[in-house]
Amino acid sequence: MKLRLEQRIFLRSLCWQTSWNFARMQCLGLAYAIYPLLEKLYGKNSEHLARRTRRYMVCFNTNPYMAAAILGFMVHMERQGEEMGDQGLALSGSLSGLYGAVGDAFFWNGLKPMVSALAVMLFFWQPGFWAPLFLLCAYNIVHLGMRYTIYLHGLHRGIGVIETINSWHLPGFRNAMEFVTSASLAATAFLLVDYFALAGQKYRSFSFLLLLLLLAVMGWRRRELGEGQPRLGESLILGGVAVLLSLLFFHT
């Protein structure tokens, strides 16, 4: 089966961050993804092809999923000639910042925590292989679906892809996903009481309250520390005290 040029470019974009570096970030990923088009357009003149490829090795960084929209837009522009390709490249700098923010908020802050929280909740409810399976399916249906759709929109509509993405109201979805995340985290905390046998049926609510208190203390400490990494020792001491209290007073 021979893939169409557009499909080959999209598949290559799945390796967008393979050579991520601090100097020019995703620059090689961009050049690698768009290369089949450049080869088709300028392949007869090796020097011209090399010059055009180097043109795409500019400093570039955005959300790796939303990069598909920018890549589609760039392919659209490059097809219309070198001058338009250069204009597309110039505009992509602004787009990368915009879609970096939009993509990070939607995928890293919204979808990933939501799907992870739901999968963990499923695990503590009914442990089994289907928790990771749910995580993979739920995340990738949205992720791959959106990634390919925005690529196609960029490819066919050019700069019109901005309108398309804007019409999806991603910040609104992100807020909704945060509500689902919060609810599933509360349910997970509740399920932990039973899973770790912290209390008999009679003292379940007290144990859950103790766990919520522990959560509040840990959350407050994390906020005090800023967005740093979690402190293992501190977590263990706090958790140890809570577990000990739970075992002493509530376990039957």
Binding site: A189, L192, V217, M218, R222, S235
Partner: peptide
Amino acid sequence: LVFPVAGIAG
């Protein structure tokens, strides 16, 4: 349970 709890708190 410290690990999921610390994760939820974070």
